[in-house]
Design a protein around this nucleic acid. Sequence first.
DNA 1: ATGGCCGGTGGAACCGGA
Length: 268
Amino acid sequence: MKIATFNINGIKARVNALLDWLDEAKPDVALLQEIKSVDENFPHELFEERGYNVETHGQKSFNGVAILSKLPLEDVVRGLPGDDSDEQARWIEATVVGKQAIRLCGLYLPNGNPVELSADGSPAPGGKYAYKLDWMERLQARAAQLMAAEEPALMAGDYNIIPQDEDAARPEAWREDALARPESRAAFRRIANLGFTEAFRARNGAPGQYSFWDYQAGAWNRNDGIRIDHVLLTPQAADLLIDCQIDKHVRGREKPSDHVPVWVELDL
DNA sequence: ATGGCCGGTGGAACCGGA
């Protein structure tokens, strides 16, 4: 079973690029981020025509996540637990059943910039950086539940985290950024250290492989990228891991997203 | 060499992204 994550940066603007990639890559499941659409305006039919079931968790203008799946999507849950006042659409999960069942979680983790700090150096309450770190605490709680279940599960999406310096072409440019600051990296490690396997790292030793290139400053042409889209596997899912790749070439096409797909092949 | 964008909203600039 091939399961992909792809931050499409707007479904309306990306429909053709997304359909072209689906036709070519033929993922069984695609976890999408930044659909930037309410549920009613998501073009379900275009994907259903191609054999995909569609579940969305959208909002107006920003954020929004979705799952496309050739297998039925069961027990769909929208929204990350832990804060009923959080109205940002950044989390969706569902179960698919192949040879065995796997729980799939799609996430769009907050960017966190600009970094605002209090006088004591802690993230300023109410600021975007505090929101990011608070969201990651809630993510850790859900991750711990998935780990405790001792079943195949994965959390895939745009983590907005550069895990290590080798995941950026110019790590010095990101040192103070919310994507790479020590607090951000530590929060990511706390989640991974619950026992998850970061699929790309586990399958690809080489540094210098990225999943995002800014639209600005010729970042793509200079390969000035960062690796911020990740797939985390529970041990029971990691046992099934066959391959993990980044579809880098998608970034060089017409009207690309600034992210490219990352996928895993699981023996499911 | 240098500088360089894009999508959504709403119908012009501005917000948000990373």
